[in-house]
C-alpha cells in the first residue's frame, strides 16, 4: 500500500511503533447517532424501540427435523419466543407452525426473514390483530368442591374431561386473555397441574394466513374426493401403498 520498497526506509518523523497522523481528538467527528437497530436517530429525542407481541405463521415442508431447525434458529439468534405450535395441514407434507414472539419491530422483521430463509419454509407471514386465535389449556384441580369447579368451567365454556374423588381435570379453549382469566379463576381450588398448548392462529376471512398461500382445503378436498371415488369399496384406508 505504501509503495514496494525493497530496502528499509528511514523515515524520521514516523513513530517507532504505530502510524502517524492527527490524533483522534484532533479529528472532526460527526454529531449523528444510530440506535441499537442501526437506525439514525436524534439521541436527545428518541428512545430505544419497544418490544411488542406478534403472531407469526410459517407454512413449512413437514420433513424430519423441521421443528428443531425452527427452535434452533430462535435460540441461536436470541429471539424471544412465547409459544410455538405445530401441526400438519390438509396438504400432504405441509405443516403450519404458529409462533408468538415478543420483539421490537426490527426484531420481528428479522424473525420473519430468518424463518423464510430456512430451506423447508414455504411461506412466512405475520398475522394482523384481527386474526382468529385460540389456545387450549388443561387444568387439573383438587376435587374437593366439584360443584364450584363445574360452575367455573361452564362460565368459561369449558369441558370436564376427568372427575375423580381427588382431582378434576377440565379443558378450556379461547384467546389468551380468556385462558389467563380462567387460570386465575381456578386458582381458588388449587391447581395441581396445568398444560397449555400456546396460541395457534389463522388470518380472518379471505386473507391467506401466509402470503401467497395456496388454499390447501380445495386441493385436499379435491384430491380426497377423487380418491374416494376411484377407490369406492375399499375397507380401512392404509397409507402404505
Amino acid at each position: 500500500m505504501s509503495g514496494d520498497s525493497e530496502e528499509p526506509t528511514d523515515n524520521g518523523d514516523l513513530p517507532k511503533q504505530g502510524l502517524k497522523g492527527p490524533r483522534p481528538e484532533e479529528r472532526p467527528h460527526p454529531e449523528g447517532r444510530r440506535n441499537s437497530h442501526g437506525v439514525r436517530i436524534d439521541p436527545e429525542v428518541e428512545a430505544e424501540p419497544r418490544k411488542r407481541s406478534a403472531v407469526i405463521s410459517a407454512l413449512v415442508e413437514n420433513e424430519p427435523g423441521v421443528l428443531s431447525r425452527v427452535s434452533g434458529l430462535f435460540s441461536r439468534r436470541q429471539f424471544n419466543i412465547e409459544s410455538l405450535t405445530v401441526g400438519p395441514t390438509t396438504v400432504d407434507g405441509h405443516a403450519r407452525i404458529t409462533l408468538v414472539v415478543e420483539e421490537t419491530d426490527a426484531g420481528i422483521d428479522q424473525v420473519k426473514k430468518q424463518l423464510a430463509k430456512l430451506k423447508p419454509a414455504i411461506a412466512v407471514g405475520e398475522l394482523g390483530n384481527d386474526a382468529v386465535r385460540a389456545e387450549l389449556v388443561l387444568l387439573k384441580v383438587r376435587g374437593d368442591e366439584p360443584d364450584k369447579v363445574h360452575a367455573i368451567t361452564q362460565m368459561y365454556e369449558g369441558q370436564t374431561l376427568d372427575a375423580g374423588p381427588r382431582t378434576i381435570t377440565v379443558q378450556i379453549t379461547g384467546d389468551q386473555q380468556k385462558i389467563d382469566d380462567a387460570v386465575d379463576a381456578f386458582r381458588q381450588f388449587g391447581i395441581i397441574e396445568i398444560a397449555r398448548t400456546g396460541q395457534t392462529a389463522l388470518a380472518r376471512g379471505d386473507t391467506p394466513t401466509t402470503p401467497d398461500e395456496d388454499p390447501g382445503h380445495e386441493a385436499a378436498a379435491n384430491s380426497s374426493a377423487t380418491e374416494q371415488q376411484t377407490t369406492p369399496q375399499t375397507t380401512p384406508t392404509t397409507d402404505d401403498d
Binding site: M1, S2, P8, T9, D10, N11, L14, P15, K16, Q17, L19, K20, G21, P22
Partner: peptide
C-alpha cells in the same frame, strides 16, 4: 494525512 508508512529503525528487529 493517514499514510500507512511504518518506521524501520536499525536498532529494532525486522518489521
Amino acid at each position: 494525512e493517514y499514510p500507512m508508512d511504518y518506521a524501520t529503525p536499525d536498532d529494532e528487529p525486522l518489521k
